[in-house]
């Protein structure tokens, strides 16, 4: 009976998959004729979504970060919490997958940090999970494509086209064929002149959600935390003596030429610590931003088939970047808990 049911379910699923493939092919060939693919505007700063809390405006990358937070907390509360409340020892289902991921992270941290592992673990693990979820959720269709339509401030825009109307909400797209130059109007910067009735002439789309890592604030914040926590754990483990790594005064006093060289090396290490923030941040940002750019440009050139391969590529890169960020943070933090002198001793 159950076998028959699964068979039936399988058949049903198979037909859904066939339908999806057919619909995909249909829209892939007919879609570009209706909706012209648009090469995107390259913007570095996150765009405001129009929402604000107490005068603090919320950007679209913030919204995406909050969405990633929400997903992680949902997993933590509803999946992990439910399993923990069940009191079972045998994991199953989605919890098992999540636990396998956490176990993998835990094993790496434990291998690198030893007895400090449990104290260190929350920082790199949260870094990994947040980047992981943010990078993957960024690839969901609708991200970076659905947003408000507005007048460009400078450069070129496109003419708006009415797509469909749901209630009193009009849904527009922009027509690539009708390229329009921005005309500086009088009173553009004025208040209350924002035309509600009359639509923009040269338009661009400001997405509601944009990949967190495509905003420099997100990777730099994580990099800053990673480097800051390296110092915090270093001081926690070694006391104030940790800072001798950067300013080796004792060595300068003790040994002549070698001491001086070590002093300079220590200063270099201090500089390197700030360089770490830069390299951490730009690595993640560069990879993800380049990926987004690549996807949208290739999508604008050929809407069929090629973006699929690039999507796989992007999924892979999203995971790899999360892993690299996590691994480097783990290595730096666990390295800080080990005494510099102890290494020299043997």
């Amino acid at each position: 009976m159950s076998e028959e049911q699964t068979k039936k379910g399988f058949n049903w699923r198979k037909w859904v998959i066939y339908f999806c493939i057919l619909a995909g092919i249909y829209s892939a060939f007919l879609g570009p004729s209706i909706l012209k693919p648009i090469s995107p505007v390259v913007v570095l700063p996150a765009e405001p979504t129009g929402l604000s809390i107490g005068g603090f405006e919320i950007t679209n990358t913030m919204l995406a970060t909050l969405l990633a937070d929400l997903i992680l907390l949902t997993i933590a509360v509803f999946v992990v919490g439910k399993f923990m409340r069940s009191g079972s020892l045998v994991p199953g289902g989605f919890y098992n997958a999540f636990e396998a991921l956490v176990e993998f992270l835990w094993n790496t941290v434990e291998g690198a940090a030893g007895k400090w592992a449990f104290r260190i673990f929350p920082v790199p693990a949260t870094i990994f999970l947040l980047i992981f979820v943010a990078n993957l959720v960024k690839l969901v269709p609708g991200f970076e494509s659905i947003g408000r339509i507005k007048e460009v401030h400078h450069g070129y825009g496109y003419a708006p086209v009415l797509l469909t109307k749901v209630g009193n909400l009009s849904i527009y797209t922009i027509d690539k064929a009708q390229k329009r130059e921005h005309v500086a109007k009088e009173g553009e910067h004025g208040e209350g002149h924002v035309d509600q009735e009359k639509l923009c002439e040269a338009c661009e789309i400001v997405p509601f959600l944009r990949g967190s890592a495509t905003d420099l604030n997100f990777p730099f914040a994580l990099a800053f935390i990673a480097v800051l926590m390296t110092q915090v754990y270093g001081v926690w483990a070694l006391g104030i003596g940790y800072f001798e790594k950067f300013i080796p005064i004792r060595q300068l006093i003790k040994g002549g030429a070698m001491g001086a060289i070590n002093f300079i090396v220590g200063i270099l290490e201090l500089i390197l610590e700030f360089a770490k923030i830069l390299s951490f941040g730009f690595r993640l940002f560069g990879n993800i931003f380049a990926g987004t750019l690549l996807l949208s440009i290739v999508g604008a050139l050929t809407a069929v088939l090629v973006p699929v391969g690039l999507y796989f590529f992007e999924v892979f890169f999203g995971i790899i970047q999360a892993y690299v960020f996590y691994l480097l943070a783990t290595i730096f933090i666990s390295g800080a808990t080990v005494s510099h002198h102890a290494e020299e001793a043997h």
Partner: peptide, 24 residues
């Protein structure tokens, strides 16, 4: 393999940092 992999990724990260500075 695990130790080599960790060190390899570390080295790659340092090498990659150059390109990242250039990107910056």
């Amino acid at each position: 393999a695990p130790i080599i992999q960790t060190n390899m990724i570390l080295g790659m990260a340092f090498a990659e940092a150059i390109a990242i500075y250039a990107l910056a």
